[in-house]
Computed example of a mutant assay.
Amino acid sequence: METLPFEIAETAHALRRAFDRRAATLGVTRAQWKVLFRVDRQPGLRQVELADILDVEPITLCRIVDRLEEAGLVERQRDPADRRAWRLEVTGQAAPLIAKLRALADDLMAEAFAGLSEPELELMRTKLTKIRNNLTANPQGRMTA
């Protein structure tokens, strides 16, 4: 049990690094593809919400979004409810890049999970979800009786 958290973290790290190498061939950094994927999945996110989801400082996210906006991949839209806030959308120009990134991700997942059956993958999903739920249900890390 002692090494299991380390193994989970190392596996996640290996997946990120493998995807980073592949995404770099398209000229995209990890920070950029994370923003593109999330905004594509959740259009209209406020920048502050996205920074929280990605666990980065708002100023860091602002710089990433600046670069993506300059490249024509993301656009900021004023939040009608709060003039100080920006909502993010991917542009039509981003669609081909996102499709290529998704194809890279699909290929990587097929490679990474080769030899695992669908029931094994579903069991893994279930167990990982249970771990995440345990942690979010007890965010202060207090021991329960």
Rank of each mutant, 00 (worst) to 15 (best):
M1R: 03
M1E: 05
M1K: 06
T3A: 08
L4G: 00
P5M: 03
F6M: 10
A9L: 11
A9F: 12
A9G: 04
A9K: 07
E10F: 04
E10T: 02
T11Q: 13
A12N: 10
A12H: 10
H13L: 10
H13P: 00
H13M: 07
A14W: 09
A14M: 06
A14Q: 12
L15M: 13
R16I: 00
R17L: 13
A18M: 06
F19R: 12
A23P: 00
A23V: 01
A23Y: 00
A23I: 01
A23L: 03
G27I: 04
G27R: 00
T29Y: 03
R30Q: 13
R30M: 12
A31L: 12
Q32M: 11
W33F: 14
V35K: 09
R38I: 04
R38W: 05
R38D: 13
D40M: 05
D40Y: 05
R41S: 15
L45Y: 10
L45N: 09
L45E: 15
R46K: 07
V48F: 10
E49W: 06
E49I: 08
D52F: 05
D52Y: 04
D52W: 05
V56C: 09
I59Q: 15
C62I: 04
R63G: 10
V65N: 11
V65G: 11
D66M: 12
D66F: 10
R67M: 03
R67W: 02
E69Y: 02
E69I: 02
A71M: 10
A71E: 15
G72V: 06
G72W: 11
L73H: 10
V74N: 07
E75S: 02
R76W: 01
R76T: 00
D79Q: 02
A81Q: 14
R83L: 11
R84S: 11
A85Y: 06
W86M: 12
W86V: 02
R87T: 09
L88M: 06
E89P: 00
T91A: 07
Q93Y: 02
A94Y: 02
A94F: 04
P96S: 07
A99E: 13
K100H: 11
K100R: 15
L101I: 01
A103Q: 13
D106W: 02
D107F: 02
L108E: 05
M109W: 08
E111V: 03
A112R: 14
A112L: 05
F113I: 05
F113C: 13
F113G: 07
A114I: 00
G115M: 10
G115R: 06
G115Y: 09
L116P: 01
S117Q: 07
S117N: 03
L121H: 04
E122W: 09
L123H: 09
M124W: 12
M124S: 13
R125N: 09
K127A: 15
K127L: 15
K127Y: 15
K127D: 15
K127M: 15
L128C: 04
K130Q: 14
K130G: 12
I131H: 01
R132D: 10
L135H: 09
T136N: 06
T136P: 00
P139S: 05
Q140V: 02
G141N: 04
R142V: 11
R142T: 07
R142N: 09
M143F: 07
M143E: 03
A145W: 13
A145D: 13
